[in-house]
Amino acid sequence: MAEAVSDAALVERFPWVQISHDNKHLFRGWLDRQLLIQRCRDCKRFHHPPKPICPACWSGRLEPTAVSGRGVVHLAMFLRQGAPAPGVDYEKAPHPVVTVELEEQPGLRFTSTVVETPLDEIEIGLPVELVWIDRYGAPFPAFRPPGRAAKGGR
């Protein structure tokens, strides 16, 4: 569906991120609630953040590829101050930011926030899955422990 979104419209949907020739597929994927990570058609390696070539084999034959979004928290911090975003109130609660190592490839990581989870449960080693939240009226990829939604959240 988002294939139909023009470059200009894409930039307008995400006025708060720097969209470029090299990362536009990532944000087109967000509009479809798909996490598309660049994968090399030749050596099959994923890489992130998006680059114009495969940094491993230098092939230019890249394919934005949907990943499961499942992974394990590799880095975790809790911001007491930071950039503004809707739904983020640093005075009320620290904002968790995690880097998740995705199950598709060792060392392939994606950084976002964690939702629906008490802060004291967010730690390195925690298995998580992808969940789409809203930010400025567009889908935004976040993480939560598997099955969390069923139990209700914060």
Binding site: W16, L75, A76, M77, L79, A83, P84, T113
Partner: peptide, 20 residues
């Protein structure tokens, strides 16, 4: 553009690796 809270700029990234 101004960063978003989840931007892994170097200053935030040192904290993230401190957690590691």
């Amino acid at each position: 553009k101004p960063p978003m809270p989840e931007s892994m700029d170097p200053s935030a990234a040192y904290t993230a690796w401190a957690s590691r």
